[in-house]
Amino acid sequence: MSLESPLEVIYKTINDSQITTDIYLPSPNTTDGKHYYPVVIDIHGGAFMLGHSRMVSKDQIRDCLDRGWIVVVPNHRLCPQVNILEGPIQDCRDLLRWIYDGHLDAVLAGKEDTAKFSCDLDRVIAFGTSSGGTIALSLGYDVERPVAAIYDLYGPAKFSDPFWTAELPHVAAKLPPGLTTEFINQVYQEHPVPTRGGVSLEGQAESRGGPDFSDPRQAFALTQIAQGKVIHACYPPDNRGPIDPVENISPRFPPTFIVHGAKDTMVTIEVSRALFAALKENGVECDMIEVPDEDHTFAAKMEVGSRTWNLQRQGFDFLQRVISKTVSKY
């Protein structure tokens, strides 16, 4: 099993959508018997409408594996056919329950080459970039059993902020002429609801050259971003409380680390500052790093050993510190 060929399993089936997760395993700790490993859920970004599980940073996965963690990278249904709460958030909450209910353990036990791996269910943690950061944060509230800690890398939050209705001219400049509403709305005809979008806002695409505007999904998503309508397109406007991390922080919220680029033009850093303030006000163990000179999509572009790499890596160090203090029965 390698970074190029993870173990892929179905964790949920709903309305003809078979939703998969990729599983990466660290080097085994022992040669004899089972050993229990922390589990990190790594959730991809893509404005809730794009991307898939293979569009995450392989260097970050490798860092987690070197720490001795099992890495679980899920797909989820993509908006706008489903809204943020009923699609991406619910799918990843169901993945968390799938892990806690022992299904990941059963998958590992059922294969000869993975049978020595078992999950430390007291040390399940979550990490996500961009929209994946928002989804990771949702695993800390309105769930029967939250994750032990969360690392949010420039995730959208505070959906009452005027930024979420502001047009983004630098994105609009990349849209080709002639995109019609009739064309981009073909996205609503996709069945079943897809779990793969052909481009990630981290700069990764199915083929080189960036977004493919002949694909209605990619054209739809980039148009919503340019027009300041991402959240409006993906969730009803009358009550965004259930999807807004800032409105769901309480003293019981899991320890949380935030990293955000100081020059982010896609998700204003102000929403992460608001989230950090809410965490501190509620006495939640937390920290935040503002990465100098970085825009929104730096996770897939940073070089190992660079200043940005070392700064964002502190989020994983935070997760490691938290679970090292966790008393586990495993």
Score class of each variant (00 low, 15 high):
residue 89 I to F: 03
residue 123 R to Y: 10
residue 66 D to N: 13
residue 158 K to I: 11
residue 194 P to F: 01
residue 321 R to Q: 08
residue 97 R to A: 08
residue 328 S to W: 01
residue 12 K to F: 00
residue 180 T to M: 08
residue 165 T to H: 01
residue 298 F to H: 04
residue 24 Y to W: 01
residue 197 G to C: 12
residue 198 G to P: 08
residue 49 M to Q: 03
residue 91 D to G: 09
residue 181 T to D: 14
residue 7 L to F: 09
residue 211 P to G: 04
residue 327 V to P: 01
residue 115 A to D: 07
residue 152 D to V: 10
residue 202 E to S: 15
residue 132 G to W: 01
residue 240 R to Y: 03
residue 157 A to M: 01
residue 150 I to N: 08
residue 162 P to I: 05
residue 46 G to L: 11
residue 176 P to Y: 04
residue 130 S to D: 02
residue 290 E to G: 11
residue 138 S to H: 06
residue 72 V to M: 04
residue 50 L to C: 12
residue 145 R to C: 07
residue 238 D to E: 12
residue 310 N to S: 06
residue 222 L to W: 15
residue 55 M to T: 08
residue 307 R to Q: 06
residue 115 A to W: 01
residue 4 E to A: 12
residue 124 V to R: 00
residue 96 L to N: 03
residue 74 P to K: 05
residue 123 R to I: 08
residue 217 R to E: 09
residue 303 E to Y: 12
residue 328 S to K: 02
residue 153 L to H: 01
residue 186 Q to K: 02
residue 316 F to M: 09
residue 66 D to I: 00
residue 233 A to T: 07
residue 201 L to R: 05
residue 162 P to D: 03
residue 17 S to K: 06
residue 193 V to P: 14
residue 213 F to P: 03
residue 314 Q to N: 05
residue 48 F to K: 02
residue 62 R to G: 13
residue 110 G to A: 11
residue 202 E to L: 15
residue 104 L to F: 03
residue 147 V to W: 07
residue 168 L to S: 14
residue 162 P to Q: 04
residue 181 T to G: 07
residue 94 D to F: 05
residue 315 G to C: 02
residue 295 D to R: 12
residue 42 D to V: 12
residue 105 D to L: 06
residue 47 A to R: 06
residue 125 I to P: 03
residue 119 C to E: 10
residue 257 F to S: 00
residue 122 D to V: 02
residue 170 H to G: 05
residue 190 E to W: 14
residue 173 A to M: 02
residue 102 G to T: 00
residue 53 S to A: 15
residue 262 A to C: 12
residue 187 V to F: 05
residue 248 N to Q: 11
residue 227 Q to K: 15
residue 233 A to G: 13
residue 119 C to W: 06
residue 255 P to L: 02
residue 25 L to P: 01
residue 198 G to F: 08
residue 62 R to I: 02
residue 113 D to E: 15
residue 130 S to G: 03
residue 195 T to G: 02
residue 9 V to I: 07
residue 213 F to N: 13
residue 160 S to A: 07
residue 51 G to C: 00
residue 40 V to T: 10
residue 115 A to I: 05
residue 136 A to S: 14
residue 264 D to P: 02
residue 208 R to E: 15
residue 159 F to L: 13
residue 62 R to N: 15
residue 288 M to F: 10
residue 317 D to Y: 09
residue 76 H to Q: 13
residue 28 P to C: 00
residue 34 K to Y: 14
residue 130 S to H: 09
residue 275 L to T: 07
residue 88 P to A: 04
residue 56 V to I: 14
residue 106 A to N: 03
residue 252 R to T: 01
residue 166 A to C: 13
residue 160 S to C: 10
residue 315 G to Y: 00
residue 206 E to W: 13
residue 237 P to C: 07
residue 244 D to S: 11
residue 143 V to L: 14
residue 32 D to G: 12
residue 47 A to D: 03
residue 226 A to C: 07
residue 148 A to K: 03
residue 41 I to E: 11
residue 38 P to I: 04
residue 56 V to E: 13
residue 21 T to V: 14
residue 52 H to Q: 13
